[in-house]
Design a protein around this nucleic acid. Structure first.
Length: 911
RNA sequence: GGGCGCAUAGCUCAAGGGCAGAGCACUGUGCUGAUAACGCAGGGGUUCGUGGUUCGAAUCCACGUGCGCCCA
């Protein structure tokens, strides 16, 4: 039998089946870099409408992880798609460079503390550290295929940026948003320093545990004729002199209990347990809702002060008495409660942990040494109900390992209720688009509840608070003049200048204190909260760089940023301009393992981007990002990745098949739609439909829809039907025949559209395929325009829906016969149809119906009843070239094993 | 402990009061001209649990469990 395979036009392409991503991706990165594709995209869209995705700065203290990779890839997908749609899309990546984690890591490296180290020297080391990791992360992000202005990123430690921070703080201060007040912070009296949360280690410690009676005062002091007391519980007796309130839970029940030791008010849920500690019994005389107690008064037995009962919903019903001793100067919860009730923040303890003059009997004594004396004193007053010891987790200094205390110190705050700011924040939140929509509620609830923003930190690594203190009257001073002088010098020399230079050198010559006329100055030692740094990035980046604009179109970050960057950015922007710095905020969930648990070293379930890139390639990571619904938590595991590799191979193969069949086609060979087969016009309509739905999904930031739509398109419509069907036309029809050229015209349209639609996600593969495309017009796929949107021919699509229901039926019948071993290939099938005249007319309206179904013959006959399809083995002989069983096989005596069509082609007569 | 959110096939996602559906994976099978590919068919579900509303609940409500983020 003759071998006709050489007379058949098989696919040819340099685009390999095996992706070899790990090896090839770096070559494409090099190509994009050397050909300056990012810059060319900007040039191409110069003068077009802007679309700014403003990058939230990752923290520059380590390698990227899957969370940061997810975030950057999502941003890259958005930016690339908008760029191809013709928007001008400068993307300026940034890094957050100041703050505690870097300070902590550098101090550890240097094996020293912030009090022992030389500030200026240390700041240089910290800056080097931040720069080093920003550079490392930059390479890691680039490796993911992320496009951006990598040569000109923004760093929060650059002098320009720092000057913006100074300026923004100053403007807020000058317009009355900033004030100083006391706030409790962790304090190590051994190291004599404030400690950040990261510098705290919790260890089990024994503490005194005492129950103290605080007698009622005021109208309620005698209840049903009895003298009663609130019973409070504390493990820090030394904070009792600073007591300012008793907190009760407003929704819980409290009882007045009569006992041999006196009458006490305490939580109904706890009174029996508390009495049991002393083996007492008692009886309930009265009961109250916690709410009723609020506003009552009592006497602090140590100070004699008459103080109020307040409500707090954190009051526990599982330990203590339900009446919580509240000292706003010595605890964070107490502090916030104190703010709500405007209680004084007293903290009569000095930097070495000793009571100050205010606490007369024990002044100069260390608070821990005072504990037993205080307890003895309470006992002598007859208010000590019970004393024991308790072991609980207590904070210790990471450096000296000594227990720490809460002590109030002066801090700088931003007042959220100044000038209607809180209201403005809420209005602006309502005006923005939140994706997913729940984000609006989340940040709204936080903004409604949030306390004033504590802006100061007692640290080294950050931007100084540009305030001077008059040496004569000790008033803090910040004026337009002092501010612009500092800002100017920071812009020139960086914020180290604050440490290097004296106050006199930082201030304009002849500057005098507006309060007392004083002329000598101290500098503020505190630095700004690092959240303030990133919170002004919209100013530092969007308003200072050429070609950018304020506000940004999109902020896109993890959902934790509702409290973080989204909020701090919103506050600074609203405080300074009255407007939100973003129009749309997109949030994503966190990366978790196959079981939905977060990744941690202790669980041993950590996967790194580096691992994925090494074993599968960055492209698979990009596909993973696109395939998952990022609005929830995002799962990853080896099996998920393995699955994606299969999916990737499927898409890649479809691309390869399309490319292979275009090897001898150039755009000049194009066939007009009117001259195509109907099925070709159907394919174009289906493509159009896909372009519309995919574009809509991109615009709604629903990339997993993009992924599904494109993958389904490749599988359901291309591989399963259209491409399978086209093989006969492509392989066996005349090389330049209209039917073959028409098919190629459609395939080229499909391929170029598909590559464009895929490019924001599968950037490497789209580029690789594009470079293999004969007759490509542009240097890079990313310089192409997004496929044009046009309404698909709905009537045509509907008509073909009916065809596909028929096809489904035929395929099932063929499969039955295959199982019966009657036929193998569907081409061996003869289809007999009986059905209503309507069905028969419908089927007869298709040209080349057997080809569309990949069978050799179809006969249709009108009849009553249901549509009926039967399959027989065809009587015809198989053409050895096109493999169709055809009645004309043998007609041409020169080629007895071919059908007429093939015989003509082989003999050189094109058809 | 509080606020916000999530839970549908082994995996990724649909269906948002009316028969629970795709793709991948799996199984069977065809083809050998997409070949470490492609086609066809099939199996696979307590829709996290319990209770409620309803003629009818994966869907609405309540409680619970598990998980995540934020706060304490």
């Amino acid at each position: 039998m003759a071998d006709y395979s050489r007379t058949v036009l098989l696919p040819q392409t340099a685009f390999p089946m095996k992706a070899d991503l790990t090896r090839r991706e770096p070559q494409w990165l090099l190509f994009w870099h050397q050909s300056q594709i990012y810059q060319k995209i900007q040039e191409k869209n110069a003068g077009q409408p802007l679309f700014i995705l403003h990058d939230g700065p990752p923290y520059a203290n380590g390698h990227i992880h899957l969370g940061t990779a997810l975030n950057k890839i999502l941003k890259d997908i958005v930016v690339k798609q908008k760029a191809m749609q013709g928007f001008r899309t400068p993307y300026i990546p940034g890094w957050d460079c100041h703050g505690m984690p870097i300070e902590h890591q550098v101090l550890r490296e240097l094996k020293t503390t912030k009090t022992a180290v030389k500030p200026l020297e240390f700041r240089k080391k910290a800056a080097d550290f931040a720069r080093k990791f920003a550079a490392i992360q930059r390479e890691e992000f680039k490796r993911l295929g992320v496009f951006g202005d990598w040569e000109n990123p923004y760093l929060t430690l650059s002098p320009d940026y720092e000057a913006t921070i100074i300026s923004a703080f100053g403007k807020l201060a000058l317009s009355g948003f900033v004030y100083q007040d006391y706030k409790p912070i962790h304090w190590c009296f051994t190291c004599e320093t404030a400690l950040a949360e990261a510098e705290i280690e919790y260890e089990n410690d024994a503490s005194p545990s005492i129950f103290v009676a605080f007698p009622l005062a005021g109208e309620e002091s005698t209840l049903t004729g009895r003298k009663a007391s609130f019973l409070i519980w504390t493990t820090t007796p030394w904070t009792l002199p600073a007591n300012q309130a008793i907190a009760v839970h407003p929704q819980e029940t409290y009882v007045l209990v009569e006992t041999p030791a006196g009458c006490f008010i305490l939580a109904a849920a706890l009174w029996e347990a508390v009495l049991a500690k002393k083996g007492l019994t008692g009886s309930v005389v009265a009961s109250f809702q916690g709410e009723q107690l609020v506003g009552w008064h009592y006497l602090n037995p140590l100070t004699g002060q008459k103080l109020p009962v307040v409500a707090a919903d954190y009051v526990s019903m599982t330990e203590g008495t339900g009446c919580v001793h509240t000292a706003p100067g010595h605890g964070l919860e107490d502090y916030y409660t104190g703010q709500r009730y405007q209680l004084p923040i007293t903290s009569p303890v000095d930097h070495q942990g000793r009571f100050t003059e205010e606490v007369k009997p024990w002044s100069g004594l260390h608070v821990f040494q005072a504990n037993p004396l205080i307890i003895a004193h309470l006992d002598s007053l007859g208010v000590l109900y019970h004393q024991e010891e308790t072991v609980h987790a207590y904070p210790h200094c990471w450096r000296c390992k000594q227990p720490v205390i809460f002590r109030s110190t002066k801090q700088w705050f931003l007042r959220i209720d100044h000038d209607g700011l809180r209201q403005k924040l809420q209005e602006e939140i309502a005006k923005c688009r939140w994706v997913p929509a729940e984000g609006a509620n989340r940040i709204l609830a936080m903004v409604q509840m949030r306390p004033d923003w504590c802006l100061s930190r007692q640290r080294l690594w950050g931007v100084p608070i540009p305030v001077f203190y008059c040496s004569r009257c000790h008033q803090p001073v910040i004026t337009r003049e002092s501010l612009s002088s500092v800002e100017e010098q920071v812009r020139k020399f960086g914020s180290d200048i604050w440490v290097e230079k004296s106050a006199a050198d930082l201030l304009p010559a002849g500057f005098t204190c507006p309060h007392c006329g004083g002329t000598s100055w101290e500098k503020e030692k505190d630095i700004l909260d690092v959240w303030f740094d990133s919170g002004v990035s919209h100013l530092a980046v969007l308003t200072t760089r050429k070609n950018l604009a304020w506000p940004a179109d999109v902020y896109l970050e993890g959902s934790d940023q509702h409290r973080g960057w989204f909020q701090t950015s919103l506050i600074t922007a609203c405080g300074l301009t009255g407007k939100a710095p973003f129009r749309t905020v997109v949030t994503h969930g966190f990366v978790v393992d196959a079981e939905g648990r977060k990744m941690s070293k202790s669980l041993g379930n950590v996967i790194t981007p580096e691992q994925v890139i090494k074993t599968h390639g960055a492209e698979i990571l990009r596909l993973w990002v696109a395939s998952e619904n990022y609005q929830q938590d995002v799962r990853i595991s080896e099996s998920i990745l393995k699955n994606l590799v299969t999916v990737y191979r499927g898409i890649r193969n479809t691309i390869r098949f399309l490319l292979g069949n275009l090897h001898d086609f150039s755009p000049e060979d194009r066939v007009l739609p009117e001259q195509m087969e109907e099925v070709d016009r159907w394919a174009l309509a289906k493509l159009q439909e896909t372009i519309l739905s995919v574009t809509a999904a991109y615009e709604e930031f629903l990339f997993y829809r993009v992924y599904e739509l494109l993958y389904d398109y490749c599988n359901l419509w291309l591989s399963s039907f259209y491409l399978d069907y086209l093989k006969d036309r492509l392989y066996t029809h005349g090389k330049t025949s209209r039917s073959r050229r028409a098919a190629q015209t459609v395939l080229r349209e499909i391929l170029t559209s598909l590559l464009k639609l895929l490019a924001p996600i599968l950037s490497f593969t789209a580029e690789e395929a594009y470079q293999c495309l004969p007759g490509r017009q542009k240097e890079s796929i990313f310089l192409e325009d997004w496929p044009e949107k046009a309404e698909p021919d709905q009537a045509l699509l509907q008509r073909w829906e009916r065809f596909f229901t028929f096809r489904k039926l035929v395929l099932k019948k063929i499969e039955d016969k295959r199982q019966e071993k009657l036929i193998g290939s569907s081409l061996a099938a003869a289809v007999r149809v009986k059905g209503s005249p309507d069905w028969i007319d419908f089927l007869n309206s298709f040209r080349h119906l057997p080809a569309l179904l990949l069978v050799s013959e179809i006969t249709a006959q009108a009849a009553d009843g249901e549509l009926e399809v039967t399959i027989e083995k065809t009587r015809y002989d198989k053409c050895q070239r096109c493999w169709i069983y055809h009645p004309t096989v043998g007609e041409n005596t020169a080629y007895p094993d071919l059908c007429i069509k093939c015989a003509q082609i082989v003999s050189g007569q094109e058809c």
